[in-house]
């Protein structure tokens, strides 16, 4: 649905995005990077607010810059918290509905429907200037969805939401994703992203660091062996069996059992299961502390 081919964008002497090639399809994709990584530039390119300096950006096969055909299938929830402050939430969402090409009655009906969906039905007739950050986020999501777009772009959508609000927001995103919509979520909070999706686009200093499934990206990082924590009452016996395996890099004993580093995690997990059964090893729990987004991001940025 969204395709970037060698897309670069310069702001005078400063580069915002550098030679990025990637494709974004249905489902939730997280756009991840630190501040200044190029997330907002990528969002702006995709939403047709700016043109690439070099390369190409297409959405549904069309160039997005000032292209109403693209905006018919795209909903955008920007990071900014600025609104027409004297409007009520309902008036604002209706106005966006009209901008989306709906008739007044249709915009009214759709606005009410989406406001209900984001849980703002009881507060939508108050002026936006009195809204909290969380209420603004919900109204922004409602306006992005008003015309039932196939592509939804959300720039830092969970900022300012309370835990219940975050849970409801994530549930809604998963529902939309299950309907086959392509959802691109920009964030710099790894914990948030991890709850949303495993499909990532990692940016750093304007460059594309990695794209794809988190686990696949992690497995490709050979330079950093996987850590596996094993909780057991008999750490020495477990260690003696594990050290015989070729891809074990190190073994370290700790209070709960042991922590090992492995080169080929898939092969290790297959072998480990066999060992547990054959050798009757008493394992109470095992986990991989660095098989998460934060570690992957950390490793990639270091690389």
């Amino acid at each position: 649905m969204i395709e970037l081919v060698n897309a670069s964008r310069w702001y005078g002497q400063v580069i915002g995005l550098n030679d990025v090639t990637c494709t974004i399809g249905p489902g939730i994709t997280a756009l991840l990077g630190m501040n200044g990584a190029g997330k907002t530039t990528l969002m702006r390119l995709v939403t047709g607010q700016i043109r690439p300096t070099t390369g190409m950006v297409t959405v549904g096969g069309h160039e997005p810059f000032a292209n109403p055909e693209v905006f018919k299938i795209m909903g955008y929830c920007p990071e900014i918290d600025n609104f027409y402050e004297t409007m009520t939430g309902r008036e604002f969402v209706r106005f966006i509905g009209r901008l989306a090409g709906m008739s007044a009655p249709e915009a009214n009906r759709k606005a009410d429907e989406k406001i209900e969906l984001v849980g703002m039905a009881d507060r939508c007739d108050k002026k936006i200037r009195g809204y909290s950050k969380g209420m603004r986020q919900r109204i922004k999501l409602a306006q992005a969805m008003i015309h039932d777009p196939q592509i939804i772009l959300l720039d830092e959508p969970l900022n300012g939401l309370d835990p219940v609000g975050r849970h409801e927001y994530l549930t809604l995103l998963h529902q939309l994703s299950e309907q086959g919509k392509a959802i691109l979520v920009s964030s710099h909070i790894l914990y948030e992203v991890e709850q949303m999706t495993k499909s990532l686009i990692l940016l750093h200093r304007g460059r594309l660091l990695a794209t794809g499934d988190l686990r696949v990206i992690r497995s490709l990082l050979d330079k950093y062996p996987h850590r596996v924590r094993i909780e057991t009452e008999e750490p020495r016996r477990v260690a003696s069996h594990l050290t015989a395996l070729a891809y074990i890099v190190s073994v370290e004993f700790n209070r709960l059992g042991l922590e090992i580093q492995v080169r080929d995690p898939d092969a290790f997990y297959a072998e480990f299961g066999r060992l547990i059964i054959e050798q009757n090893l008493q394992i109470t729990a095992f986990s991989s502390p660095d098989n998460n987004l934060e570690s992957v991001f950390h490793y990639l940025v270091q690389t």
């Binding site: 047709g48 607010q49 000032a66 109403p68 018919k72 955008y76 600025n82 966006i96 306006q143």
Partner: peptide, 15 residues
């Protein structure tokens, strides 16, 4: 200035 331009420019209404 108020950044609300983004709501106008990302909708299917021509500039």
């Amino acid at each position: 200035e108020q950044k609300t331009i983004v709501y106008l420019l990302t909708r299917p209404t021509s500039r």
